[in-house]
Amino acid sequence: MEIIQEDDGKKGAFKALSNETVAGEMTYVWAGDTKFIIDHTEVDPAFAGKGIGRQLLMRAVAFARDRQLKIMPLCPFARSVFEKTKEIRDVLF
């Protein structure tokens, strides 16, 4: 599974690709220069139950840590993973 990031400076997405098929996508919008809001996560039903959503979130957390950014998880999925995983809460705002 390859995870790529697309970003146009206003919004972006992390996409999980399996043989060029989009298995899942997590979208975000920028809230200033140092914060972004995760607003949606979607996984193709053919890839359900394989941890794709969590992989996408962990890539977002790594991105935030690398650039000293903060995340606001408005997406219910992302919010639930942050609630369950205290080790990643350092990137929350």
Score class of each variant (00 low, 15 high):
Glu2Asn: 12
Leu56Gln: 04
Phe77Asn: 02
Asp39Lys: 10
Leu57Ile: 09
Ile71Ala: 06
Gln55Ile: 13
Asn19Gln: 14
Lys50Tyr: 13
Phe47Leu: 09
Met1Trp: 01
Ile4Lys: 14
Arg59Trp: 04
Asp66Lys: 11
Trp30Val: 13
Thr85Asn: 06
Asp8Gln: 03
Pro76Lys: 02
Arg79Cys: 04
Arg59Pro: 03
Gln5Leu: 06
Tyr28Pro: 09
Asp33Asn: 14
Gly9Leu: 01
Gln5Ser: 06
Gln55His: 10
Ile37Pro: 03
Thr41Asp: 02
Phe63Ala: 08
Ala64Asn: 08
Ile37Asp: 06
Phe82Gly: 03
Ile38Lys: 03
Leu56Phe: 10
Lys11Glu: 06
Ile4Leu: 14
Phe63Arg: 04
Glu2Leu: 10
Gly53Gln: 05
Ile3Asn: 00
Arg67Asp: 10
Leu74Ala: 09
Met26Leu: 15
Asp66Ile: 07
Glu87His: 10
Leu92Ser: 15
Glu83Tyr: 00
Asp90Thr: 13
Ala31Leu: 09
Thr41Glu: 04
Ala23Arg: 06
Ala13Thr: 00
Phe47Met: 07
Pro73Asn: 10
Glu42Gln: 15
Ile37Cys: 10
Phe36Val: 07
Thr41Ile: 12
Phe63Pro: 08
Leu69Val: 07
Ala31Ser: 14
Phe36Lys: 02
Ala46Gly: 13
Phe93Met: 14
Thr85Gly: 02
Pro76His: 02
His40Glu: 06
Asp33Pro: 08
Lys70Ile: 11
Phe93His: 14
Glu20Ala: 13
Phe63Cys: 07
Asp90Lys: 11
Phe93Ile: 14
Cys75Gly: 00
Ile4Gln: 12
Ser18Val: 15
Asp66Pro: 07
Val22Ala: 11
His40Tyr: 12
Pro73His: 08
Lys70Asp: 12
Lys11Cys: 03
Asp66Ser: 15
Lys35Thr: 15
Ile52Trp: 04
Ser80Trp: 00
Lys50Trp: 10
Leu17His: 04
Met72Glu: 11
Thr27Gly: 05
Asn19Asp: 15
Arg89Cys: 13
Met1Leu: 12
Leu56Pro: 02
Thr85Cys: 03
Phe14Ala: 01
Thr41Phe: 12
Tyr28Cys: 12
Leu56Thr: 02
Glu6Trp: 01
Lys50Pro: 11
Met1Thr: 05
Glu87Val: 12
Met72Asn: 09
Arg67Val: 08
Val91Cys: 04
Ile3Lys: 00
Pro76Arg: 02
Met58Asp: 03
Asp39Val: 13
Thr34Gln: 09
Phe77Tyr: 10
Lys35Cys: 15
Arg65Gly: 11
Leu17Glu: 05
Phe36Ser: 11
Pro73Thr: 09
Glu87Cys: 13
Gly49Trp: 05
Ala46Met: 10
Lys10Leu: 05
Phe77Lys: 03
Phe82Gln: 02
Thr41His: 08
Asn19Arg: 13
Leu69Arg: 03
Ala48Met: 14
Ala13Ser: 02
Asp33Ile: 13
Ile37Lys: 06
Glu42Ala: 15
Gln68Ile: 08
Glu25Ala: 09
Gly51Tyr: 14
Ala48Cys: 12
Gly32Val: 11
Gly53Thr: 05
Val29Tyr: 03
Ile88Phe: 07
Tyr28Ala: 10
Gln55Val: 10
Lys70Arg: 14
Val29Asn: 08
Cys75Lys: 01
Phe36Glu: 07
Leu92Asp: 08
Gly51Asp: 06
Asp8Thr: 01
Ala62Ile: 09
Glu87Ile: 12
Ala23Thr: 05
Met1Val: 07
Met58Thr: 04
Val61Trp: 00
Asp33Thr: 10
Gln55Asp: 09
Glu87Trp: 08
His40Val: 09
